[in-house]
Design a protein around this nucleic acid. Sequence first.
DNA 1: AAGATCTCTCAAAGCGCTTTGGATACCGCA
DNA 2: TGCGGTATCCAAAGCGCTTTGAGAGATCTT
Lengths: 343, 343
Amino acid sequence: MNLKELASKLGLSQTTVSRALNGYPEVSEATRKLVVEAARLYGYAPNTRAKALATGNTHCIGHIIPVSEKREMVNPIFGDFMAGAGEVYAQNGFEMIVTMVEEDQEDALYRSFRTRKSVDGVVVQAPRMLDHRLGLLSDIGLPFVVHGRASSFDAPYSWLDVNNRSAFRRAARFLLDLGHRRIALINGLEHMDFAYRRRRGYEDALTAQGIASDPDIMSTSEMTEGNGYANATRMLGLPKPPSAFLVSSMIETVGVRRAVEERGLVMGSDVSIVTYDDCLSYLQNGAETPIFTATRSSVREAGKELAQMLIERIRNPQSIPQNRLLEAELLVGSSTGPFKATS
Amino acid sequence: MNLKELASKLGLSQTTVSRALNGYPEVSEATRKLVVEAARLYGYAPNTRAKALATGNTHCIGHIIPVSEKREMVNPIFGDFMAGAGEVYAQNGFEMIVTMVEEDQEDALYRSFRTRKSVDGVVVQAPRMLDHRLGLLSDIGLPFVVHGRASSFDAPYSWLDVNNRSAFRRAARFLLDLGHRRIALINGLEHMDFAYRRRRGYEDALTAQGIASDPDIMSTSEMTEGNGYANATRMLGLPKPPSAFLVSSMIETVGVRRAVEERGLVMGSDVSIVTYDDCLSYLQNGAETPIFTATRSSVREAGKELAQMLIERIRNPQSIPQNRLLEAELLVGSSTGPFKATS
DNA sequence: AAGATCTCTCAAAGCGCTTTGGATACCGCA
DNA sequence: TGCGGTATCCAAAGCGCTTTGAGAGATCTT
């Protein structure tokens, strides 16, 4: 069943039927009711491709997920982020196109999105400090919003980010206030913008107490359980091991905890841990009371808000870019305690 | 730049240019070279929507991810699964449309996919034992492949599944051989087909040894870290606690381990654990030697194979459905050991 | 040398929708 | 009675591509 058939079945023109279904005012309420009813009856729904061709809007949004052959890692937050965004897309009649792409082919992909007109806009994930993607997207005129920020890009653009610097500053301060002086940082890859900012926050807090940062107890790697374990194990084996850890993700924290317990140390007493918590659905930080002391911000909520922002931008390309800086909450759990001089 | 412009720039007709670019034999190699070169020069690429409208193929594949408002859980395997599938799609010029949908709206979504012609086919995730989706998809004639199987659906259809029953039978047998007699099962939701099969495998092994299964040490819930912890904690507190655990996912195992260690028990000696490992990229089971004894099968590989199967099906709808039953490997790690009578 | 056969190219129709620019009927008003 | 103004509806063009059916040349038969 297509428009033409439906129209002839109703004895109306395609124009009228189309307008009735799309809520245009040029058609009387009586006929609109008739048309809508008939469409329901015959199970008519417009062909998305034809509609896109006629209007120029695809009602599709691209999510680009960088993968690389060597490091096969898929960021575990994508699922929850997409769940948030997807909900908003569904409400607004948008579809989400997810593309896995090697980093060196990303530019070509954006260009292809543009020339082939397969999406109305894109969400840029995991921005790096120096990220040419934003410049490229501006140049080719493809609407976009960024989950995070790219320090290197000056022109205004729409983004939503957690205040990573202040979150880590507060977390480190919290540990300092408990008396810890050797605080390790288990960070993500520091060419990523968020990780760089987190390190800055950590250093801010140390500096404020006149403590020099020590590269021996700072690591930067992909945030996997395995890396958390490996980094923490190495640090705990140092002549002067850290008494506290500041960790960039829950999943990595699972590994840190493993290292701590394997060494026979008790978390929350011998060693304190503060983690960053994205509120992943399958890895919640305790039911009522949090297990880990954590700076927390829901990645799913971020997905929702960003989706909304992008839809706005697509509907009204002239609007000025919106920015949203979320402050993470600092929740105290049982993984932290006052510094205890070790025997 | 569109076809018409490119054609006039070349002094050729749209027909010829289109054919040249699509590799039809009716055009000479000389002109084809010319056309291809010009397309590259001007950065021409066909509008996907126009192409889809003209040909009737969208070159899009739908992935439906069920979410529900009450249980906000997003299955952590989706990321890696999609990474695998996405790779194959990219190689074959397909795009992946991901839709989050409430379970009760799933039917409407499939119907809408069909009538609006927005995808060429879909991959069905997480089939339930009684799953009417497959019948529906057959009825409406939307090509599909299933990640898993649905016991209730008889007609032939394309699927790829791990032999969950044999995997869990072997895992349970392994624990029995080590002398364990009270083996707990921490399973996923058992209306899911995979979880049902896993329980069957577990029971097979127990029955073969003449052991009756005990509901007290069998749990079925969503596979989150928190549920793993909660279930294991409860079981360890029983008058007759289990000496071994068979767990359905790595993420849940993290919680089980937490419960074990919190109780002061040593994994691999006081308590044995065998887990199912999907080879998630951010939660790998040790680098060289596995930490957990595990039945293992890569969900990313599954994604690749299923994508290939679906593309085949779309290209050749008359082909007979393919089925693929993978056997999981049983890898011995350090989380298991012989049964030790407790004091 | 004329007809038959290829080879290469083209004009035009069609995919299913939206949207422009009228047409038609009906109303009140002078 | 006739005229502008609404309220409804329509025919046709157009979105950018593929594909059908056919037409020129060039090459080959006999």
